Simulated scan of single mutants.
Amino acid sequence: MRTEITLANPGSPMLPALLTLPAPAAALPPAIILFGRDERGQPHASRFAGDMAGEAEAAAGLMCLHHAIANTDALRDLAARLPAGRLFPSGRGFVPFVKAELYERLLAATVTADTPLPVRAVSKAADAPPPAGAGSGSKGSPDAPGGTPKAPGDWAGIKVGSTVLACQGPMEGWWEAVVVATKADDRFVLRWRDFPDEPEISRARADLGLMPPGSREGLG
């Protein structure tokens, strides 16, 4: 839709000139915020575009998360500080970790009680496909019967079955990932340990991080 305004044409007083202006853009619906604590008490939160409100709210129900509409100045400011979430075909979503201070501000702005989520509500989806390599029986594989993931002590020790840290993307932080295959040029295929709905990724050895020394997080 365009708006036409008739103005006098200074070059020819007898002929009007048409000035065409674009119509004002329709306001975007406010963002949707999903948030909650996992079974270990870690805070998670992310924002979703307002035009995904229905899908985001359905994901919140599946994952037992709280949801809020960013329709106040305080919530709009908080939404802008949150990482963007993702929705999976299963109907669940990717809701990353956030800092405790930001999460507490979110609780206060939404007047929400600080309660943990049921076990596995944020981490592994109940309807997720089997992890890569499941049932292969390969010795040392974290997915083999009796297998245990290993945290290598240095970059040279990274191999199939290792639990390492990989960067999800700009502003999205580092997350635990399990090496499921090796590739040429010193690269690895990995799956996200806690988000099996996400596609496998490929990273070079130099682009991976090591688990903190002595950490047993997620290693059985």
Rank of each mutant, 00 (worst) to 15 (best):
A79I: 03
A26P: 00
T112W: 06
T20H: 07
A58M: 11
H67S: 15
L87V: 13
L19R: 06
A59S: 02
L78F: 12
A53F: 10
G85W: 15
F88R: 12
L28D: 07
L75D: 00
A25L: 04
D77M: 02
R37F: 11
L15W: 10
P16E: 09
G91L: 14
A109D: 02
T72K: 03
F88E: 14
P16D: 06
A79N: 00
C64R: 14
L7F: 02
T6Y: 02
H67L: 12
L65C: 13
A56N: 02
E104M: 14
A26S: 01
R40G: 13
A56G: 01
A17P: 00
L62R: 06
A84C: 15
A100G: 13
A113Q: 12
M1P: 11
F48W: 13
A8C: 04
A45R: 02
D38S: 03
L62N: 05
A25E: 09
A27K: 06
A59E: 08
I33A: 03
E104L: 14
F97I: 00
S46T: 07
A8Q: 03
I5E: 12
A45Y: 10
L19M: 00
L102V: 15
R92M: 12
V98I: 09
I69K: 01
R37C: 00
M14E: 05
P89T: 12
A45H: 05
L21E: 05
A60I: 07
L87G: 09
D73K: 03
T112D: 07
